[in-house]
Design a protein around this nucleic acid. Structure first.
Lengths: 336, 336
DNA sequence: CCGGAGAAATGAATCGTTTCAAATAAGGCG
DNA sequence: CGCCTTATTTGAAACGATTCATTTCTCCGG
């Protein structure tokens, strides 16, 4: 019963004779032996570990993506090392260093900075890397993203199709890629709507995607002339603030003002009126990212791939679609 | 320039002469050397890794605890291996096995099962272990918990002090420890209230802590005679459902019915009326757990400790405290 | 100029696995 | 019964860092 045999029992059971195998197994659980991944790694070169670097695991968006990734990676024997950077490039660097020392077999990352050179360099040093909710830009990297342009188009398009002609767009700073993309999509919807009837999109930029910025924006929005009959928000927090202000101002939603949000956070459906919103397939995003990673880690001749998901419009009461007849495009109706 | 010297440069710089040290450092970043944690671990016995096993990282309660733990562990050079069990004992076992193979330096865990023997056994095998939001019971284990009895008492006590005499308690099954504790606390508040005036607590048990169970419960609640003037819920999801039903039934909150929730989830403050709720110090819970872990891992003569946090009542509009005069205990007023 | 003390550098052993060439055992066949 | 083939088992080397007993280098006093 030598070390070599024990190793074979664990890794190539078929190569060792049954009686020996049993004797070894018996000894293993008699002594409570647990193999050491570290030694295994040292010899074989795989750590059975994947680094996940994101802005904040307490943010449900990331947490759900992580669940998606965890599902597929767990089934392949990997454990996740989860690292929150809080958007600090310093912290990101430290974590990446540590993960490299741990020789993670792969890396899922939402980088802090727009400039991806550091990440690309790491990937170049042989760590399979997939970008989460960021696209590779110039760099040759795998990525899993959601089409925010399309999302913006869905939200705005929905309102235009319901017959609204003047809609407001409460958006964050366009330095945030997501905000810029959603605006782009909204404008696309606007151009389309204009082919049928006059339509306007009034953008109001706020400096944070928060509830109280939403409240303020809504107040400003009510004093616009002509007053828009619908408002789309760059995320659900803003929408929540807007709903709050409107309710305080006695403006009926959706009758006097239709509202759509973005993200479809867990409580969007619990509000009254329930919030129409654009859902991002977070779980799937993480799962696909993990699959790309496996492909890159295991596949011999890997070609970098980018997967882009379509967001989905979840229609609820706040946009008034049910009453007005959702999706009946091209039949604009007068707004009260 | 031998291996030994390189190692010394990295670990005991003061022992190697300046010129050599610099030569080594230069060589290190010329060749892009990154030390291997695995080899380090093999020799030294520390993996610089902590396992975090919880029910679901996508649940904000756990995610925030993890952030608390991550903060303190990161500063001590540890990386977190996060594992979601989804309450499956099988999955928990597999993860624990893998973490043991990785030789994690510590373990933070919210066990799936009530029976802690397996966990205690693991701890007995030398892995420093701290229970998260579970107390050790019979077993000798460190733990960080929140006093749910106290929380229940706070919530119910608040309503009684506001002058309510008949309050309903929408609670989950008492097989869930948290639910049982909160009920215990509520009854404690009830006994206290009875010393001053007649008071009743009517418990309604639902089988899940979800929004729609809350909606159903609220409907039942309205047909009770005498109709309670206040309702406390075992968590915010239930409270949300209750608010929804009440709003649909045209019952004014808080004037005709006061409502308090439990957990103080992120959107509790965003509802209208904003929800009075009991906040658990999630971040602190994780941070303390991590500190206990470090203490146990590093300290020579460690004594097991349990830290129990006090929850905090966050008073907002839904309980009508502002109008009625919060905290003026002993001055019961008639309820409309 | 020599011996010795202290500083600095070296290299072999070690941690726990896996791998693989070599040794050994077990049959099968003439 | 002895040789050859195939099935098992063995043991040493290797992975990359750390440790520590030794060796080598420096410098100083006698």
């Amino acid at each position: 019963m030598s070390l070599g045999t024990v190793s074979n029992v664990l890794n190539n059971p078929e190569v060792v004779a049954l009686p020996t195998r049993q004797r070894v197994l018996e000894a293993i659980d008699r002594t409570g032996f647990v193999r050491s991944t570290a030694a295994h790694q040292l010899r074989v070169g795989k750590s059975r570990t994947v680094g996940v670097v994101l802005l904040d695991i307490a943010n449900p968006f990331f947490a759900e993506m992580v669940r998606g990734a965890e599902g597929v990676l767990r089934d392949n024997g990997y454990v996740l090392m989860v690292c929150s950077t809080d958007e600090s490039i310093e912290r990101e660097r430290r974590y990446l260093r540590v993960l490299e020392e741990h020789r993670v077999d792969g890396l899922l990352i939402t980088p802090v900075e727009h400039d991806l050179r550091e990440v690309a360099e790491l990937a170049g040093r042989g760590i399979p890397t997939v970008l989460l909710d960021r696209d590779g830009g110039e760099q040759e990297l795998c990525s899993a993203t959601v089409d925010d342009i399309r999302g913006g188009e869905l939200a705005a398009g929905h309102l235009f199709e319901l017959g609204h002609q003047a809609i407001a767009f409460v958006n964050g700073p366009s330095s945030i890629r997501q905000c810029a993309d959603r605006r782009e999509g909204a404008q696309r919807a606007l151009r389309r709507a204009r082919r049928r009837s006059p339509a306007t999109l009034r953008e109001m930029t706020v400096n944070a995607l928060s509830v109280d910025q939403g409240e303020k924006a809504a107040i400003g929005l009510l004093s616009l002339t002509p007053r828009p009959s619908a408002v789309m928000c760059a995320n659900d927090q803003l929408a929540l603030g807007v709903l709050k202000s409107l309710s305080e101002a006695g403006v009926a939603v959706p009758d006097e003002m239709a509202v759509v949000g973005y993200d479809d956070v867990s409580f969007a459906s619990m509000l009254s009126p329930a919030l129409t919103s654009v859902r991002q397939p977070k779980y799937e995003l993480g799962a696909i990212a993990a699959e790309l990673l496996l492909e890159e880690a295991l596949g011999s001749n890997h070609k970098h791939r980018s997967v882009r998901f379509e967001p989905e419009l979840v229609v609820r009461a706040s946009s008034g679609a049910t009453r007005r007849g959702a999706g009946r495009a091209g039949q604009p109706r007068p707004v009260p």
